[in-house]
Design a protein around this nucleic acid. Sequence first.
RNA 1: GGGGGUGUAGCUCAGUUGGUUAGAGCGCUGGCCUGUCAAGCCAGAGGUCGCGGGUUCGAGCCCCGUCACUCCCGCCA
Length: 589
Amino acid sequence: MFDARYSIRTHVAGALRAANVGETVTLAGWVHRRRDHGGLVFIDVRDRSGLVQCVFDPDASGAAFVTAERVRPEWVVKLNGTVRPRPEGTVNTNLATGEVEVIITSAEVLNSSETPPFEIDSALDTDETLRLKYRYIDIRRPEVMETFLLRDRVTQRFRKSLEHRGFLEIETPILGKSTPEGARDFIVPSRLSPGEFYALPQSPQLFKQLLMVGGVERYYQVARCFRDEDLRADRQPEFTQIDIEMSFITQDDILGMMEEVMREVMHEAGVDLKTPLPRLTYADAMDRYGSDRPDTRFAMELVSLSENFATSEFKVFAGALSSGGAIKGINAKSAGDWSRSKIDALNQVALDAGAKGLAWVAFPTEGDVRSPIAKFFSDAEMSGLREAMMVEPGDLVLMIADAKDVANEVLGTLRLKMAEELAIARDGFETLWVVDFPLFKWDAEEKRYDANHHPFTRPFDEHLDRIPADPAGALSYSYDLVMNGLEIGGGTLRIHDAALQRSVLGVLGIEAEEADAQFGFLLEALSLGAPPHGGIALGLDRLIMLLAGKHSIRDVIAFPKTSSGSCPLTGAPGPVSQRQLRDVHLRTD
RNA sequence: GGGGGUGUAGCUCAGUUGGUUAGAGCGCUGGCCUGUCAAGCCAGAGGUCGCGGGUUCGAGCCCCGUCACUCCCGCCA
């Protein structure tokens, strides 16, 4: 609760109401805006709680009036006065405090301010770099402040919901050990061990598993994570996870528990989350949406057309099918009148996404068909296409014929592209689980298997026999939480058997000797009474971003980095002295 | 590493086919003003057109390079 306790004021500005009329108050805050009428001055005084109009009238206090003429926006002031109702006709309904005003009897300037580099109270969309350079001023803007109030509420709700369910908040090291796989590590040189380095954690993954071996059973942490990769609108080099791990559970246990927690958290943010959440297998997600994090706020699902074109004369289609591929399509409603050049641009999108080409049929009006390839289709194929795609006049059908994975992925990209181009309404918070990910994914370039989630993911019990022989066929106890097409969380049940863990590491090309060197401590822990366990990590920043309706993760981080990883405010990263380098046994060119 | 976009007053932006002294709104400074709340009116100050080079009689505008920011691809177990 934010109020006037423990401060030099008696009230906070934003809390004053008609009920306070007649009270003598002391306020402290910033000059938000000043309206000088010559013989009468209005100053809106702002603190974290909001703002209230203060009136400076020479009849009430000549000294205060003189002060009011002198102060400027963002000066810091302490004011004494009396709350009174606003005169008839001057109530401001746009303001929570708009029914009242404070007639000031004495004023003290606590600090002056230079003219701010940008206006706090402005509708103008200020350059983001400038906002970040003066973030402390930016944060004074009510809209920005509101975001951090929301972030606080959501974070506290996570803590409460998890505490109520028996989770212990435990901190894990920031200075850790670099391990192979995963993202690039941020590394920290060691002064006491010349030539050796700590790594900042990409996540507390191994430590939380060790806590399970330690009998903690239910753990959580608001954990800062570090990954030295390129930035995006939704990616920062350091970010925060709500990190969770539980013992003696099934996958249903943790999904059900998380649904309850998420419902409570979303409720805190004013969103009614319907549970149980839909669950989509990875295979179905790819098949229907061409994405493992489908945006389910709109349909435009992928439809298989392989059967319809099974005997097609069209070489591209026949070729794709004969080599074991698929023909799939999406129906972009109301794009049937798109020009050739706009469709050519879509073709380029398809090419960039890995397709060999884009097949399309436009149905601009009833009975009218426009397409460079329709002439290869039989009447039966054309009517089958109309039926399968549920074509109406005005539609544009986009088709990809390729290996099934390629067709899915390209159409998934086109689906999102078309939703954007057609400005399809995407409202609400469509949330679902994507489950049953393959344990491994094949890296064609490196010609080896990678862990899909991470190397500690537990395979389906019934797929254990596939591990050495047919790794690609093994599915895993794994789950991503997807909201509005963004992955906001992911987790797995873990391997708790040392032999199985060695076997999985082996598939990843990490043989016994290296496994012992890199993960010996984990393998040893697994052999010393590790309970079955599993967990999940939620991307707190992304979740807040969605809840706040922001388009960048930077908007919900107090002091974020620019896309080149620098901090406009402090100038980090920066050089260090030769002495500091010598201390940690480093030389630079 | 690759592709797209942006960079002009403190802020947000305009700036025509390359042509005289680079403009507007907001903010700022000063003046007037006792019921405003984006207060109003009057006046004023304020410019390394991101930076460097080039073409040209002449460059904010064209060319080359470079920097910063931003979006995307790669990358992100």
